[in-house]
């Protein structure tokens, strides 16, 4: 990093500043605006649930953080450093591959459809990136993989392939796989939406456990209102590409101020 005093961005104290910060982020696909001047801050260790109707930009927030999607305008900071741009000789330029890879190392993501590697066993799924990216030895990676898989309750399924596991088990492997990279931020993108109802609980239990045992910042896009209420420190209700209302779950779920929030929660209640 440059120490030039004319640096365009103010240096943020890496220990005390927010873990994730969106500053006036814009994103559109053609004429469809997905994120509209989004501002969002997530503190270190905070658990944030993102709720909202489909098309409100919830998932896009996570995908941008994971650099799966480009932003059109604005800035995203992770751990005090800009994500999609970087400092070069005091000027802010678009991130190069090296910077992106360094930043990605801070973030882990779990997907709606698991996206496990089908040709690798559960354990191999968890060992692949630690070996090739972090440079862990096979033995270290295996120890880490075994530990995490037992943490998600799959210590007896180490050598099962994804096709031999239920959806809930696959999703738990995916969570272990993401945790094996020791991310500072974990993103959960509708992780229970593709599961049969009876399998949702086992995945949510694992997420509860992570929240309790690991010091990791969590952003979760979810339709499980009950879980969001119990799990999150803060709930953000998205509407039209920005945060329409946010606050502690007691407030959002019990006495929402915004009419749209009320409508959305009422609709969710009717659906269950």
């Amino acid at each position: 990093m440059s120490t030039d005093p004319s640096v365009a961005i103010s240096p943020v104290d890496e220990r005390s500043g927010p873990m994730v910060r969106f500053e006036k982020v814009m994103k559109s696909y053609g004429s469809l605006v997905v994120l509209n001047d989004l501002d969002l801050e997530v503190a270190r260790g905070e658990k944030v649930a993102i709720i909202g109707p489909s098309g409100s930009g919830k998932t896009t927030v996570l995908r941008m953080l994971m650099t799966l999607e480009r932003i059109d305008r604005g800035m995203i900071f992770v751990d005090g450093e800009p994500l999609t741009s970087m400092n070069r000789n005091g000027e802010l330029v678009a991130s190069d591959a090296k910077h992106l890879r360094r930043m990605r190392g801070k973030i882990g993501m779990v997907f709606q459809h698991f996206n496990l590697f089908p040709h690798m066993s559960a354990l191999k799924n968890c060992m692949e990136a630690p070996c090739t990216v972090l440079g862990l030895s096979k033995m270290e990676a295996e120890a880490r993989g075994r530990e995490l898989l037992s943490m998600v309750g799959l210590g007896d399924k180490l050598f099962h392939y994804p096709s031999q596991l239920s959806g809930g088990q696959q999703q738990r492997v995916a969570i272990a796989r993401a945790l094996a990279m020791r991310p500072k931020v974990m993103l959960f993108d509708e992780v229970t939406s593709a599961l049969d109802p009876e399998l949702v609980g086992e995945v949510l239990n694992v997420i509860r456990k992570i929240a309790a045992e690991l010091d990791v910042t969590m952003l979760m896009v979810t339709h499980q209102m009950g879980f969001a209420k119990e799990f999150a420190d803060r709930v953000c209700f998205f509407y039209g590409g920005r945060i329409c209302e946010q606050g502690p779950p007691e407030k959002i779920f019990v006495s929402p101020e915004n009419e749209r929030t009320r409508q959305f929660l009422r609709a969710c209640l009717e659906a269950t």
Binding site: T67, R104, G105, F117, A178
Partner: peptide, 25 residues
């Protein structure tokens, strides 16, 4: 596409993505 995205999320290099994830499948 999910295979590519999972590989990106795991921060794998292009070389390893091809060698270990994409080509074997």
């Amino acid at each position: 596409r999910g295979q590519w995205e999972a590989s990106t999320a795991l921060n794998m290099s292009t070389f390893h993505v091809f060698r270990d994830v994409i080509i074997p499948q």
